[in-house]
């Protein structure tokens, strides 16, 4: 049995963040019957507190301050440290996000604890244990730690989201936080200069474009404009999120023709992102190991490539279509548009 704290910065509107209810389930597993407290921080946390009603939470600790509206290391670290200390918890669980990832290790250090991130699984057999990835999703280890407090950043999908089962709203305790005078000002969010938002984390489909799109085609010439039209058309028609191989986004740095709507943010793989989507479709991409490690969380995988011996053929995709992606995509776009129209 462990004292476990779920730590979550709330959304801008005060709501519980995505992943908090999954993390709460994970916290419960780790608590193995022990009490689970929740700590919320933000400018205003009211809606999140309400959302915790009926979830069997022992207590909600709250740090509210206008300075906590945006994720910023100095203020988040101060607040999270105060909350973790106030809870006295042995294990601190937080849903992984850019905001928690920025600050969790610093909090662990401040409370004299240890941290593990990218936690994919939790269990409590013989004491709290977690499974996490090493070497960029290529090796998975299950481990325990002797030290406490133990801070854990849990990945999406670590456990099913906790569901309310009725019962009273948990008691709320406000924790005083001394936020240091800021040296950093968060000025806002900026979307990539390309204008079109191509990264869609909620999409059902990841569409990956590889360097083959810019290579010479059957007529001996490259057709980047046509490729760009086909890819953009597909993204619009399908609502897919756009990923890229490293070699394609690297071409920008090499001064070659590259798609204006694509940047290193789109890169999937060893040195890029590891997005989560139910399905993935790779086109004109060789499916080499460094790229495919970024597909760890793509459940169903299909690929279109002219090379029947490409990496996808070797157990990396469920289906490989040996075909010209230009021709296939053109027809897919037509079918998708027709569907929409009909």
């Amino acid at each position: 049995m462990e004292d476990v704290l779920l730590l979550a910065p709330v959304e801008l509107d005060g709501a519980l963040p995505k992943g908090a209810l999954e993390a709460l389930s994970a916290a419960r597993v780790l608590a193995a019957g022990g009490p689970v407290q929740v700590a919320l921080l933000g400018a205003s946390v009211g809606p999140a507190v309400q959302a915790l009603a009926g979830l069997g939470v022992a207590k909600v600790l709250v740090a509210e301050d206008p300075a906590l509206a945006d994720g910023r290391y100095a203020s988040d670290a101060a607040a999270a440290t105060a909350l973790a200390k106030a809870s006295g918890a042995a294990v601190v669980v937080a849903p992984a996000s850019s905001r928690t990832s920025r600050v969790a290790a610093g909090v662990a250090e401040r409370i004299g604890g240890r941290i593990d991130t990218h936690v994919a699984q939790v269990s409590a057999d013989g004491g709290a244990a977690v499974a996490r990835w090493y070497y960029k999703q290529r090796i998975e280890a299950k481990l325990r730690r002797k030290e406490r407090p133990w801070v854990l950043l849990v990945d999406p999908g670590v456990a099913p989201a906790a569901r309310a089962e009725g019962g009273a709203a948990p008691p709320v305790e406000r924790v005083a936080v001394s936020i240091p005078p800021p040296r950093t000002e968060v000025t806002g969010l900026r979307a990539p200069a390309s204008g079109e938002q191509t990264i869609r984390p909620e999409a059902r489909l990841l569409f990956v474009a590889g360097a083959g799109w810019t290579k010479k085609q059957a007529d001996g010439k490259p057709h980047p404009e046509r490729a760009e039209g086909l890819i953009r058309g597909f993204l619009r028609a399908s609502g897919a999120s756009l990923g890229s191989s490293k070699s394609l986004v690297d071409q920008a740095g090499e001064g070659q023709k590259v798609f204006a709507f694509m940047s290193h943010l789109n890169q999937v793989g060893q040195t890029g992102a590891t997005p989560r989507h139910p399905k993935g479709l790779a086109t004109c991409c060789h499916g080499e190991e460094p790229h495919v490690v970024g597909w760890r969380f793509i459940r169903e995988r299909r690929a279109v490539n002219l090379d029947p011996a490409c990496g996808w053929a070797r157990g990396k995709a469920d289906v490989l279509y040996v075909a010209d992606a230009f021709a296939v995509m053109e027809r897919m776009n037509a079918l998708l548009e027709a569907k929409k129209g009909g």
Binding site: S247, D250, Q251, E254, E288, E289, D307, A309, C310, G311, R314
Partner: peptide, 17 residues
Amino acid sequence: THQDALLVGGKVQAPPG
């Protein structure tokens, strides 16, 4: 396959440029 020998065995690659 020959290509697997390259990739899995030789880890063949070339820098751009």
